[in-house]
Simulated assay, not measured.
Amino acid sequence: MPGQRALSEPLRSFVEELALCVAANGDRGPALLWPEDPMTLPALQGLFRPVRAAPDAGATVPGGPVTEELAAELGRRLHLKVRPSFCLLSPESPVVESAPNAAETTLTVLEGACRCVLSRADEDPAPAPSHPLGMRLRSGGTLFVPRLHTYRLSEIHVPTTLLRLDLEAAG
């Protein structure tokens, strides 16, 4: 298509792995993905993203042109509409919670780290570290959050940037 940018090999590899992860897990449950290509994280970190201004508690901002193309390619593979955004977290950020919805989501940590607790939308996410779906997300990891699940991000000790991809039925 005119105006389309070709994704680099590491980004194409990421899209392929992410598409397989989403297709394999679907409504079965959450999944954690670590890309096979060692150049994937540097390529993702090189995406245009907003400059971090003053600490803005869990600010979510839209993705740039290459991020849009990455989302479009993932959407083509999955036959879904994919909306990209960045979530900027700082140590001053309060706990960030998602609202339950009918969309699936992926969260890729581009830099930093945070604790994530997942639960089904009809359950209260326990803040205790022993929660069976609690984990520490670090740079390079991608978490697949199935529909009707919520997540809570906390324990943000350094500036953290997440690439969020919302997967919705194409309509």
Results as ranks from 00 to 15, higher is better:
residue 2 P to V: 04
residue 10 P to L: 01
residue 171 G to D: 00
residue 161 T to F: 09
residue 97 E to R: 14
residue 160 T to V: 13
residue 76 R to A: 05
residue 64 G to T: 04
residue 122 D to I: 03
residue 131 H to S: 13
residue 25 N to Y: 14
residue 108 T to L: 07
residue 147 R to H: 07
residue 94 P to I: 00
residue 100 P to Y: 04
residue 59 A to R: 03
residue 16 E to W: 08
residue 165 L to P: 02
residue 163 L to A: 05
residue 115 R to V: 02
residue 170 A to F: 04
residue 77 R to W: 10
residue 119 S to L: 09
residue 61 V to A: 13
residue 73 E to I: 01
residue 47 L to V: 05
residue 43 A to M: 11
residue 125 P to Y: 00
residue 95 V to Y: 02
residue 15 V to I: 03
residue 59 A to F: 07
residue 93 S to D: 14
residue 94 P to V: 04
residue 150 T to K: 06
residue 108 T to Q: 00
residue 92 E to R: 08
residue 159 P to V: 11
residue 132 P to Y: 12
residue 130 S to T: 13
residue 4 Q to H: 10
residue 150 T to M: 05
residue 70 L to S: 02
residue 113 A to P: 08
residue 105 T to P: 00
residue 104 E to T: 13
residue 162 L to K: 00
residue 105 T to V: 14
residue 149 H to C: 07
residue 52 R to I: 12
residue 57 A to Q: 13
residue 89 L to N: 04
residue 158 V to N: 08
residue 129 P to T: 03
residue 13 S to A: 14
residue 134 G to P: 05
residue 50 P to E: 13
residue 168 E to G: 04
residue 106 T to W: 01
residue 69 E to S: 08
residue 48 F to C: 01
residue 112 G to I: 06
residue 168 E to D: 09
residue 118 L to K: 10
residue 163 L to P: 08
residue 16 E to C: 08
residue 5 R to W: 10
residue 127 P to I: 08
residue 165 L to D: 09
residue 142 T to K: 00
residue 118 L to F: 09
residue 156 I to W: 06
residue 161 T to M: 09
